[in-house]
Amino acid sequence: MLNPLQKDVLTELVNVYVGYAANLLSEMVGLRILLSVPRVELIPEAEMEQGGLPLPEIFSPGHIVSSYISFGQDFRGKAFLVFPVQQAKLLVNACTGEQLLLEEGDAVPPRFLDTDFDVLKEISNLILNAVIGEFGNLLETRVVFTVPEVELIDVTESDQRLFLKDGVYILILHTTFTVAEIQVQGVIMIALNLNSVSCLLQKIDALLEGQDV
């Protein structure tokens, strides 16, 4: 879907965007937080639905924590921040200064209290706003946001595809959080309609042409 040059540009852009978010997060929790997006993919949802393409590893069946915001006007879609449940708890604990060691045994999902969801809501709000807001700036369009909703979901094989059903294209940003010397893996997924994807690709191509000149 993305040629290698487009992929490089998009990777560079989203790394700058999550960099802004990381600075804001670091100031907020008083810890040095690094965010990086080493890998970016743009996948037509139809291909995912037909099982033609593998879902990100993060979607392995089991519990995940997901938060999403929807955004609209010219650049439309939904953005998700998805973590495996253990990773989400680790991130919350790192941000609130709680014990970083989780209970042993992967079979038991860690306990999430409302206050943990509030922390995740704020973190995802900040990150998704930063990423989507910067996409809006790039496309020179006004973006309207909602506040994220956070849910703990038991994802089965069939749920995984329903979960992504809303957009036409899925932009997948594999994200690494480094907080207090621990690493937390998550995925930012942006479900975009065809028009938004076209705008984005046009803009990326324009940036590439500008570079060639």
Partner: peptide, 25 residues
């Protein structure tokens, strides 16, 4: 505090909604 002022700026100039939790602030 900066997170609050950032949130106000975000709402005024970028139409962003922000949630700030009691757990962190």
């Amino acid at each position: 505090r900066k997170p609050c002022l950032d949130a106000f700026q975000g709402a005024l100039f970028h139409q962003q909604s922000r949630f700030l939790s009691g757990a962190l602030h």
